[in-house]
């Protein structure tokens, strides 16, 4: 094409290119905005999105109360600091204590940090090269906190090590009659089973029944809590229906307690200052 004709064509074509560019930019923008809205709508339908389960504290201390639920995402760090993915503010826990990741087939893989110790299903793990897999119902002891992993619906089948998948027996649940013959994978039946399992978790007496397979129920002898019912301590309190409730023993030695409290306060203040200054605790 001769240069003068090419020039005319090219000058005309620049409007065509600009129009196409407008279309491209506009369509990209619309796509981006619509997709974001659609994504938000979908995520709203999934309240547990991003979390695979929670760690239920079965034995804690003054700060970390028993029964607290700590949501667990797919991968992260567990430790004392608030900047961690799972913050466990109990004694004996390092700032960054353990790394974990969720594996679709094996369950929640846990690895302690260098020089840290955790107990996963009774197995002691020390140091970075050790690892274990937790499944639905596995216990995890980190410092003074003892927790049990509860995986959300759909994830409870992950993991064949640790606490093996074991559907509840019919006599352990309060299944409606129409669900008695339903397979264990039935969602409604599963929902009932999980609800029953939660009730058992909260119920002290039921914990004494062998709910978990005996080889998995490896609670330490020293850690046994509450104390056996046949030796009611001074803190046993009898309810109207005859059942007993136990409270942790109260130390009456006030001087000693005051000293501990002061030390705790000083330690806590120091830690808070350190967090705020260097660990990003304040800005979390």
């Amino acid at each position: 094409m001769p240069d003068d004709i090419y020039e005319i064509v090219s000058l005309a074509a620049r409007y065509w290119f600009l129009l196409l560019m407008f279309i491209i930019a506009w369509r990209s923008y619309r796509w981006y905005v619509k997709d974001r809205k659609k994504f938000k709508r979908r995520v709203r339908l999934l309240p547990d999105a991003g979390y695979i389960g929670e760690l239920v504290v079965v034995q804690g201390d003054d700060i970390l109360k028993k029964g607290t639920c700590l949501p667990v995402n797919r991968e992260g760090v567990l430790g004392y600091l608030r900047s961690n993915d799972v913050c466990v503010p109990a004694g004996g826990i390092a700032n960054r204590h353990m790394w974990y990741t969720f594996d679709d087939t094996d369950g929640l893989r846990v690895e302690p940090m260098r020089g840290r110790m955790i107990i996963a299903d009774g197995e002691e793990l020390i140091g970075r090269r050790m690892r274990a897999y937790l499944a639905h119902g596995s216990t995890l002891t980190v410092g003074q906190a003892k927790m049990r992993l509860r995986m959300f619906s759909g994830f409870e089948y992950a993991g064949e090590t640790g606490a093996q998948r074991r559907p509840l027996d019919d006599d352990e649940t309060t299944l409606p009659e129409e669900l008695a013959d339903a397979p264990h994978s039935d969602p409604v039946r599963r929902m009932h089973e999980i609800a029953a399992w939660q009730t058992m978790m909260e119920d002290e007496e039921n914990e004494e029944r062998e709910f978990y397979p005996p080889e998995m129920d490896d609670t330490d002898e020293e850690d046994e809590y509450p104390p056996p019912a046949d030796e009611p301590g001074p803190n046993a309190y009898e309810l109207q229906d005859g059942s007993q409730v136990f409270y942790p023993p109260v130390d009456d030695g006030k001087d000693e307690a005051a000293i501990y409290a002061e030390e705790d306060e000083a330690e806590k203040a120091k830690r808070a200052l350190w967090d705020r200054l260097f660990r990003g605790g304040k800005n979390r």
Partner: peptide, 9 residues
């Protein structure tokens, strides 16, 4: 992950 979440719930 999102598809999986949606599937299970």
């Amino acid at each position: 992950d999102l598809t999986y979440d949606y599937e299970v719930s």
